[in-house]
């Protein structure tokens, strides 16, 4: 598997390859939020950036279902249902997150592939 140098950018076309290979330290280096989930939506990795903007530590969210128990703002047909129903996903979606209770415009990137061991939600805050 090809290894990418350093943390990827939010819109890198081949980011899924980098995400699959990265360990927790690697994910923590990324300048955007990364939530890695298993097929059922349970959080398996929550990077430092996401933890910092949401105010929730990784320890608090690991093992929980992301859509219902961590980020319920995504628990609708626009995000959660897409992950549930589609086999393959790579889409950027403008959205509003309520980070530390403040509504903030974000770009979400929904990533899912039958070949990948995890599915990902990337979060780029729009300044």
């Amino acid at each position: 598997m090809k290894q990418l140098e350093g943390p990827a950018t939010f819109d890198a076309p081949d980011i899924l390859v980098w995400l699959e290979a990265a360990d927790d330290r690697g994910l923590d280096g990324a300048p955007f939020g990364i939530v890695a989930m298993d097929r059922s939506g349970a959080v398996v990795a929550y990077n430092a950036y996401e933890s910092q903007v949401s105010g929730l530590s990784a320890a608090r969210v690991i093992g929980r279902n992301f859509f219902s128990e961590v980020g319920p703002c995504t628990n609708n047909f626009m995000v959660a249902q897409r992950f549930e129903e589609e086999l393959m996903l790579d889409e950027v979606l403008p959205y509003v997150f309520t980070l530390k209770m403040k509504p903030r415009r974000v770009n979400l990137r929904l990533l899912k592939s039958p070949d990948a061991r995890r599915q990902y939600l990337l979060v780029a805050t729009i300044p």
Binding site: G71, P72, C73, N75, Y95, F97, T98, M101, K102, P103
Partner: peptide, 9 residues
Amino acid sequence: LLMNAAGSR
């Protein structure tokens, strides 16, 4: 000013 996740959902 403030809103929770259900608001956004």
